[in-house]
Design a protein around this nucleic acid. Sequence first.
RNA 1: GGGCGCUUAGCUCAGCGGGAGAGCGUCCGCCUUACACGCGGAAGGCCAGAGGUUCGAAUCCUCUAGCGCCCACCA
Length: 898
Amino acid sequence: MELPKAYDPKEAEERWYAFWESRHYFDGNVNERKKPFAIVIPPPNVTGELHIGHALNNTLQDIVIRYKRMDGYEACWFPGTDHASIAVHVLIERGLAKRELDDLLRQIGYPVPQEKRPLTRYDLGREYFIKLGWAWKERYGSRIREQLRALGCSCDWRRESFTLDEARSRAVTEVFVRLYEEGFIYRGDRLINWCPRCQTVLSDLEVEHEETEGQLYYIRYPLEGGDGFVTVATTRPETMLGDTGVAVHPEDERYQELIGKFVILPLLGRKIPIIADKAVDKEFGTGAVKVTPAHDPIDFEIGRRHGLKIINIFKADATTNEHAGPYRDLERYQARRRVIEDLKAQGLLERVEPHRHALGHCQRCHTVIEPLISTQWFVRMKELAEPAIKVIESGEIQFIPERWTKIYFDWMRNIRDWPISRQLWWGHRIPAWHCADCKGITVARQAPPSCSKCGSKNIAQDEDVLDTWFSSALWPFSVMGWPNQTPELKYFYPTQLLSTGHDIIFFWVARMIMMGLHFMKSIPFERVFFHPIVKDERGQKMSKSKGNVIDPLEMKEKYGMDALRLTLAALCAQGKEMRLSVQDIEGYKKFLNKLWNAARFSLMSLQGSQLTDFSCEKTSLGLEDRWILSRLSRTIAQTRESLERYEFNHAAKGLYEFVWHDFCDWYLEMIKPRLYGTDVATKTPAQQVLFVLLTDILKLLHPFIPFITEEIWQRLPHKTAESVMIAEYPKVRPEWLDEHAEQTMHRLQTLITAIRTIRSEMNVPPQKRAKVFIKAEASDVQQIVHDYKIFFEELAQAGEISIGPSIERPKNAPRMVLEWAEVFIPLEGLLDLHQEYKRLQQELKKARAGLEATLRKLDNPDFLARAPEEIIEKEKRKAREFKEKVERLEQNLQLLQG
RNA sequence: GGGCGCUUAGCUCAGCGGGAGAGCGUCCGCCUUACACGCGGAAGGCCAGAGGUUCGAAUCCUCUAGCGCCCACCA
């Protein structure tokens, strides 16, 4: 079947995806006759849009899963999306405030007010808010799925999950209850990170530190009973309203007499003690520090050690409360200004210094974090982390690249308890019920009829939801139906690969390992591949505001998805970032065009052939056949090895190189005479080999560029499978390896290139036949020229060829000097001797340098004594070759001058 | 403050102990019936710097410089 002149990705991509799906190729089923290969998708946020990072990660996963599927595994890729508790919550709040969600509100039956702006979640109430969340999910949730399909992802869509769906919620509840019963989950007062905008607690990971230009304020605290004062330094003067002590280092001579005395807190007049604590740094500031246990993590610890009072001066929105006395009901920075003004007025502000320090910001809304004391639910992590450290140490789970293990260990060995409650509405509600009478808490899988402590029916469910990463941590087994003991769990768990970005190694990877080990008693995945972060061509992060984003769907529109996929694979080296530009995609698109045309040519050449035998019997094969089969075998091996190591760049580039340069540039050109000819004895084997090459190339490339390979596959005259997607991935064929053919071919290529170089440099018109003289002593070189004359004629436009050991350079003939031959082409016009001289000089210089370097080694007794035998042999051979080349060049230069 | 990574051809990067590579870009010549999204050819590099290990270093070790990232409770 013939191919159209150009490939149209738009039409083909959709058609083939539908075809694959209708044939159930994506389905992974429990199948005891096959080995399973499972991947669980990192669930994109349900309201997300497919960005280039998704495109990369999901392309890589699809490459692996398609490869494994073709290679005989029962492959299953579990898809799904994440409810993204806080991210979605914040988006909805924003949408409400801007009144952008009115239509959704009407849809869920909420009486939308005319005027009110901003609209808040408190106006809606919890029930409507959650309804709105689901309506939102319905509207936007399918978008990301459609985009993954456009990418070509061969997910088993029957198994799609959502972290907030019923089955996953059951898993969440089960895990919470069990961890609570086992004592891992507790509720307590801790100093936590509070986002005053989102009005929720955040884990340390959700806080981003940023260097900020701030000020260090030196404030005098008068000593009790008269003269003198202690000067403390602080970046947050307003928190002095909550000070309950002043601390110095126990060994600080300056303050020895003051320890145990009291100061009077300015502005509020509270009497607070001076205490000694080793946490204080003598060198910083004045060596005396104000202690605000309610609003600073270190102070909290100091306060605890010394039994200091805890005075919280902030409300949930970080405005001051009644404890701030005259400064109550002020926004925190306003309070700071007022406090400073008043201190200054009272002469208690000694000085202010500029001071750079890191400030925590909310990951979602970028508001400055306020450390606060609050009652929250926590998971005790230490004990859960220990086995999770061991499985990495032992290699049971392998990180790729390996360096991420160190980062993992550092975090896991210093792990802190995980605050899991969030004061949000969109998410998994905590399965705990508080009793208004006895204040007891009942944790249960379902709403209990009464308090388990006192039996009172006066109970209400905890208001909080769980950190979104809590459900993500269960993902590898929750998508397989846990807590039910499903056949899928038994067969597909643990999965073989997790592919993700390194930015969520703590958020997600570490927690999945801990939860998997705890609840499944086994690792969740065998390998974790950390893909690089995609940056623009200048190494800058892509962002909409910078206008440097590369939108996958736009690229699909312009170049086709295969082009993007291949580019991403080809650039995916195991570094930390990948620089991507549209030009790269354009470049790989050209490869697809090349492939398309090579396929067109091949199919045309196979037309009408009655091929039945593809055994490629060596006896009937030409040099070029044996060579390309040998190269194919190596390429298969290299592709497989690279894929096993997740070296996608090597796999993609190896195939690119092989297809373009070996197959197209040399092989196809070399077999043209046979294909155009009518001699069945040479034509048929060429067609056989061509067919084998084409089918194997399609199969090898299919995981990278599924659409175009299928489009071509379907036009093959003798399909070995109804789809390339389910064809068997090529296996290494050792019997095809042919060192001799490769060596001979290499010499042939070198000679042809030498002729082409002379022709090109001397401006011999391309179509003009040229007489060629080759001086070569070695009989095998003479043999090559003799046997493969046709290739010199076809590929180098050679006319008559004279070869022999005593060939003389004809007059007016520029030359190429090789290690084992000299090539001359007589010119009709005048030869530019100067140019020729320069070129030969340059080559001589190189050859001499090479010779010297080699001889230096061979003259070194240590080298001869210590280097391995084969290296010495190699150096000797090199020396001979260089020497010969140098001699030939010298002779030629001499002749040139003479 | 701790840790990690990078520095190779004009650009983007491979190579990570034995003769400096690719793609893009540049230059030259070609519309040769698969492909001008192409074909053929060429130019271009003391592999950041300094020490060390080794018979041998772009490749391993140490230090320095520049760039980037992550973690962190010096107020």
